[in-house]
Design a protein around this nucleic acid. Structure first.
Lengths: 345, 345
DNA sequence: TTGTAGGCGTTATCAC
DNA sequence: GTGATAACGCCTACAA
């Protein structure tokens, strides 16, 4: 464990000043004679010089790290988002700090604090807190913030939203168009705006068609457990089936839950889509791997991550061209879990 | 975007020296009178003081960041590992930099370089490179390294291995015990030691039983695409079924691929497990969500992440108590995709 | 108990 | 072109 080489060590070895070494090794545009330049580069290489970003950053106040706060990395949707972020970050020689907030406001705040302390200048967040004072102080310190997925009503924060309501509407319309009129909606706890919006879309479509809604909502919600949504889907299906007017189609608020719905149905020998149609929401890859392949609403995850990171870099460059919020549009992916039915079953 | 408060600002406001401020704000054990302590804390709070870790770290040479290098965060297995790491990191007030190497040696090296530059003192890595010189120079700089999942034969690197061979052996034995003798093995490209070992376990069990092996290997492999293993599973199944001696059971080198196998079989009206048994490897949660639930070998992912991070902290504390390598043992999870068959079918 | 001063590794502002 | 030197924010001997 040898002590790392610094520019001063190199300066001594090359009989130059550390200023000159710095100029060469930091690719400064400052002129240095070709001879010295090559000599310094050679010595740096020979002595395994590794620049110390701490010194550099302390001096320049430029960070090469961005933070990403999401509910949980074990959720495949957010894993894809992070993957997209990481890709464009790496392309720009940035590194990403991944933070799973577990939908816990205290944890979210703690992560934001750590990010501030580390002098990170850019943050992409799917925020869960209602109190945004932490985010505000972040911005006062000059940190660029992009909110994805969950809306944050705060001046100066750029939003990449997704039209959840329209997604819910589209899904329901698709079911309607396939002849269904008794359509149940199963959802996890509606404590987040996104979930309320999907439900709103469902209700709007049903009300337009003059049809009654059937909504069952889960109480529990454990983001650190990939199975919790699945299990909720099973439980809620059970609940829905025992209602007097059994639906012909079930719409779930996310794909994981839809898997649970299908699983529970299959245990009861209710075949999808012959006996019951099922509609998901998210469009994670896994939807293609189950049987039957899940008809769902695609919410671009990877693309959302990439876009968020690109916009973040634009924002950090701060060319004062105001960035606009964007709303990503839902897309229906038709696979095999929805069947057209004729008259009332 | 106001300039952040420093300990000097606070010192001036409190009419004390910055040394005193440092002592109270860094929770030093150094004695400071109660009055001053409270005054300084009050002023720090009022002026929204945020400590600058850069300055602190530059001085103390202690990092509060660890790096995690894995093939890809979109692989649910590694997402779980990272989740485990993050959990114990956060508990210790550390932050984690997530790096998806995409099984690309150049990318892995690049990430390691970035980690060195950022003066990170701990790294957990599932390494893919054959040339470990980068890792060696890391260690020379005093970075603690824990290798997970993929073995790294290098002095000073602590290993958390998994007994892949035994896992492959166990799986095959289970199939054998259920009366199967024509057992096919489908695998992605065997370029990693782990994959060779699983295959070795399969071959050992077959040879013990005096049975011939049937191995089909995929050539392609795109870690950034969650579907690539699934598709490979489908293709390889196709290949296997067209062989003269059709197997009664198929063992896949990972769960994703097993999903592909089951999917392809179901498209051909070959029912699992009635007509064909299928065995997976990994034990990701998703295995419980498909139909039939996948019988598989559990490789502890989340636990591996937690253990790796705990050992990393022990190592960084460097109490010179030499750490031992550990090998996690495989466990059979019996679900519904394997059927007992009587005589030759 | 408090203050002074130097330095961690780097860049930037001056001089030369 | 090149070299001193002063920061950046923090900690820590050492002195008082």
């Amino acid at each position: 464990m040898s002590k790392p080489t610094t520019i001063h060590d190199i300066a001594r070895m090359a009989n130059v000043s550390s200023a000159t070494v710095s100029r060469v090794l930091s690719n400064s545009s400052y002129p240095v004679s070709q001879g010295l330049k090559e000599k310094i580069q050679r010595i740096a290489k020979e002595s395994n010089y590794v620049p110390n970003m701490l010194g550099k950053q302390l001096k320049t106040n430029i960070s090469t790290t961005i933070g990403v706060v999401i509910p949980s990395i074990v959720n495949p949707f957010y894993a894809s988002v992070v993957f997209g972020v990481e890709e464009v970050a790496r392309y720009n020689n940035y590194t990403v700090i991944a933070c799973s907030s577990l939908q816990d406001a205290a944890l979210e705040d703690e992560y934001i604090r750590m990010i501030m302390e580390k002098q990170v200048k850019g943050l992409i967040i799917s925020s869960i807190t209602t109190d945004k004072s932490q985010l505000k102080s972040l911005m006062k310190l000059g940190v660029s913030v992009i909110a994805i997925d969950q809306k944050v009503e705060e001046e100066g924060i750029v939003q990449i939203e997704f039209d959840y309501r329209k997604g819910g509407y589209l899904a329901t319309r698709h079911l309607l168009a396939n002849g269904h009129s008794r359509i149940g909606y199963v959802t996890s706890r509606m404590d987040r705006p996104s979930r309320k919006s999907i439900c709103q879309g469902y209700m709007d479509a049903m009300s337009e068609a003059d049809l009654p809604t059937m909504i069952v909502e889960s109480s529990a919600d454990d983001p650190s457990n990939a199975l919790s949504e699945f299990d909720a889907g099973k439980r809620l299906t059970d609940e829905l089936l025992s209602s007097e007017s059994r639906p012909t189609a079930i719409f779930a608020c996310n794909d994981m839950m839809a898997f649970g719905v299908i699983n529970e149905l299959s245990l009861r020998e209710i075949h999808v889509p012959q006996d019951m149609s099922v509609m998901g929401f998210d469009g994670i890859e896994m939807g293609q791997m189950i049987h039957p392949p899940l008809t769902t609403i695609k919410q671009p995850d990877y693309e959302m991550g990439r876009m968020a990171c690109k916009m973040l870099f634009d924002m950090m460059k701060g060319e004062d061209n105001p960035l606009f919020n964007v709303t990503l549009q839902p897309k229906l992916i038709e696979r095999k879990s929805v069947r057209h039915i004729g008259q009332e079953q």
